[in-house]
Design a binder for these strands. Sequence first.
RNA 1: GGGCCUGUAGCGCAGCCUGGAUAGCGCGACAGCCUUCUAAUAAAAUUAGAAGCAAGCUGUAGGUCGCGGGUUCGAAUCCCGUCAGGCUCACCA
Length: 566
Amino acid sequence: MDEFKKEIVKLLAAKSFAVAESLLEVPPDHKMGDYALPCFTLSKELKKSPAQIAKDIVKNVEPNAMIVKIEAVGPYVNFFVSSEKLAEIVFEDAFKLKNDYGKSLIGRDKEVMIEYCGPNTNKPLHLGHIRNMLIGATLSNAFEACNYKVVRANIINDRGIHICKSMLAYQKFGHDREPDKKPDHFVGDFYVIFAKKSEEDPKMEEEVYEMLQKWEDGDKEVHALWKKMNNWVYKGFDETYTNLGIKFDINYYESEYYKEGKKMVMEAIEKGLFSKDDDGNIVADLSQYKLPKKVVLRADGTAIYVTQDMYLAKLRFDQYPKMDKLLYVVGSEQNLHFQQLFKILELMHFDFAQRMVHVSYGMVNLPSGKMKSREGTVVDADDLINEMTGVALVEVKKRYPELGEKETMNRARIIGMAALKFFFIKHDPMKDFVFNPAESISFDGETGPYVQYTYARISSIIAKNNGKVERAINYSLLTEDVEKRLIRKIAEFPVVIEATVSGLKPPLLSRYLLDLCQAFNEFYHSCPILQSDEELKNARLLLASCTRQVIKNGLTILGIDYLEEM
RNA sequence: GGGCCUGUAGCGCAGCCUGGAUAGCGCGACAGCCUUCUAAUAAAAUUAGAAGCAAGCUGUAGGUCGCGGGUUCGAAUCCCGUCAGGCUCACCA
């Protein structure tokens, strides 16, 4: 919509009112106009009252074909754009570009890696992982829509004491059984068994450390067990990823890198970048960044998490030398860790440190209360996915009892996942929130199904017209206020996608879709489509069709499917 | 105790970066929203059901934008202080 802003600036400049485009704003109420110029800042310069300046502008500046009306309201000058021109500009884009409408070129083929999920292989994925993956996947899609090349990366925590706990319990109590349920849950059960049994038998705590030692020494038997159980877990994870529509381009396994950071630390210590503390640990002094010091290598020479992270960051920039950004989607409890990691790398003179970003997010809770793994109130990801599908299933059956079982299930799954995903994504990542399954599945309110429903509603209207949408229409017919508002909303879409990417804020996109759907439903309510005269019908059908296209493109970025009928 | 984050209607949230006109949205509450057909009826009113682009829409009520200062012509927005909650300050990840 830059066209209109530019035109306004040009009009003003012609009468020697020098105004920057950025000064123009959108009035709080559309009835006031499409753009507004507050005259306060001009007041000093011209030594007149803002209201007087507004009047002067209106007196001197003539409307034209694009800007059809100019009004002074107090200290503001309000501009009204030609709805005909507006419709023409928007529809030319939206209707022609179809699935590409809204896409942006700001990425210019730059590479971005987005790391998300980060599971442990001792137990199934939980509620927190769902939030993580949905943020990661949405950002990935949004970056792609802005013409970035996106590498979706997963970091898998496949080693360590917690993994050995599941392994030891299986070794003792598993009797070589094969999984008789979803295999990651099967493994997770042994993690729980360990917790119980080790209370009765404290010796198990020692045994588990022995097992970790054996693993690190490359003991064949332990490694065989480790591989077997991890493979079960991966199989289970894959199922969950598929159900959620999550994909990765590359997996990084902690077991392959955990020792590698050591060399980096040793080199840095020779350059005098790190020092030793009293216990012999190697420490990065970050006081110049006003951060607490950080141990980067244990006194015994073993690596810790940052050591591995340092190496992995370097590895990734070696693998993708042109990488413009490396995003880590990781919970807010690790804020300090990432601040330290980035500054340590800066201290080591890696210029890529500037290109790393921590995408932080808060906790998800349930109405039943806080989620704590120690108290066993962790909400399992698969359980939640099944619950959502189940709730949706009841609704679908109620409305379409005659539908076949396969189609019923398909719709239930699509609606259930839309409810889940939309509810998660619409919340500001920074904030904790409570996930309410019942609320999320509602067709009313700010929900995924509401958006899907609007899509289906438009589809049904178009289907009633035998699927025909005329492209050549008389733009001057769309003069109603609600029509204009909807057109303007459609025009906003490309801006929203760019803002989602530049601000790393998935909620912007979901909020936008809600606004769009609401604008459509208002339009629909007050402007009959199919019952209008031929010309007007065609114009409104095109408007509806463009709206549907934007909903589809938006949902696609959110990883949400749409239905032609609900 | 230090650092980071959060505090906006009964509840759930957006707006804050980049200061402007009456602070938006959703849930909940309350009041409303067209036509046709079928049934009950002598008819109408009415009620119930179905279909119609129809799980949607409109309106009303509901606010010390945590609190106190400051900057500014103007502050939910910027600055300082303060209170409350979360996270964090490991040789965990």
